[in-house]
C-alpha cells in the first residue's frame, strides 16, 4: 500500500516538475496567429471595424473578441477566409455579399473641397482645391471614408462591374436545378 502511494507520489513530483520545466522552455512569445491574420486584412487602417487599425483588429480576432465579419471592405470573402483560419464554424448567410465597391464622384456635385483627398487612406482620389476630383479605380479599396467626408454627397460607392479583361466564366449551376 505504502509502496503504491510512493510510486504515485514519485510520478506526481516528476511529472509536475517536468511540465513546469517544459512550460518554461517551450514558451511561445506573442500570438503568431495575430500576425498571420494581419496579413489577410486589407491593411488600410480605415477604422470601420471600430478598432484603431488593421493590426489591432487582427489582435482582437486572434483573441476571439471580435467577430470574423468585422471588416466591411473585406466583405464576405474575407469573413469566410478568417473563419477558416480561426477554425470557427460561422453562419455568414446573413452577411450581405456586397461584392467589391469603388468610389465614384458625381462631377455635378463636387465642389473641389479636397476633404475626401485628405481622408483617403490610399491616395486613390486625385484633384486639387477647387477642381473636380476623380477616383483612381485601381487604388480604391471601397472603404467609404471619402463618401463620409464629402459635404455635398457627391461621392457614392458603386459596385465594381466586370469588363472584358476581368470577366470570367461563372461556376456552373450546382447540378440539377430541376
Amino acid at each position: 500500500m505504502i509502496e503504491a502511494m510512493g510510486i504515485l507520489l514519485g510520478l506526481g513530483v516528476a511529472l509536475g516538475g517536468g511540465l513546469g520545466v517544459a512550460a518554461r522552455l517551450l514558451k511561445v512569445e506573442g500570438n503568431p496567429v495575430a500576425a498571420e491574420i494581419e496579413e489577410m486584412m486589407p491593411g488600410t487602417n480605415c477604422g470601420q471595424c471600430g478598432h484603431p487599425g488593421c493590426s489591432a483588429a487582427a489582435a482582437a480576432l486572434a483573441a476571439g473578441s471580435a467577430p470574423v465579419s468585422l471588416c466591411p471592405p473585406g466583405g464576405k470573402a474575407l469573413a469566410s477566409a478568417l473563419a477558416d483560419k480561426l477554425g470557427i464554424v460561422s453562419d455568414l448567410s446573413g452577411m450581405a455579399d456586397r461584392g467589391s465597391v469603388i468610389a465614384f464622384v458625381f462631377e455635378d456635385l463636387c465642389i473641389g473641397c479636397t476633404k475626401c483627398l485628405k481622408r483617403c487612406p490610399t491616395d486613390a482620389i486625385v484633384g486639387a482645391s477647387r477642381q473636380i476630383h476623380g477616383v483612381v479605380d485601381d487604388a480604391c479599396t471601397g472603404c467609404e471614408q471619402c463618401a463620409e467626408a464629402c459635404p455635398t454627397g457627391a461621392i457614392v460607392m458603386r459596385p465594381e462591374t466586370d469588363t472584358l479583361a476581368t470577366w470570367h466564366w461563372p461556376k456552373p449551376a450546382d447540378r440539377l436545378a430541376a
Binding site: G64, P67, V68, L86, S90, D91, S93
Partner: peptide
C-alpha cells in the same frame, strides 16, 4: 435565419 455575428466565442 438570423444573420450574423453570433460566432464570437462560439468555438466548439
Amino acid at each position: 435565419t438570423r444573420g450574423g455575428d453570433r460566432d464570437v466565442g462560439g468555438k466548439e
